[in-house]
Amino acid sequence: MTINAHAAFLCNYEVMQILQQLKDNTQKKHKREASLATVTYETVHYLQDTECKSQTEEMIQKFLEGMKKFKLTKMEKLMMVNTPPRTELEIQLIVQESEERLSEEDVHAIIDLVNEIFPTPAT
């Protein structure tokens, strides 16, 4: 049944947009699918508490543009979009062997970029 289990990766923001659209569309119709409604509701509920709520397409694009010079993998950048690192510790967790691959200035530059582009979530 499956052709390719990992055709592409989606960031939280994209999933949120798709699900929200789906929710709006199905609400117009009288009949709703129970399991689809459950899983979209629960997923949107989870995503609402993450940073993707305040992100926009332009922000993510600008962020990835700025990240190009650091030679990180696609996955590492995806994680940074999903959970923007605001401390050195968080970068160490996301980037493997970060001490060797990133200089101290790089780490600070990434944190500055995150703080500049993504607004701090209201806690």
């Binding site: 390719n4 055709a7 990766f9 989606l10 939280n12």
Partner: peptide, 10 residues
Amino acid sequence: MFVLSEMKDV
């Protein structure tokens, strides 16, 4: 965290 999976079905 989320991925797209290509599938086929009848």
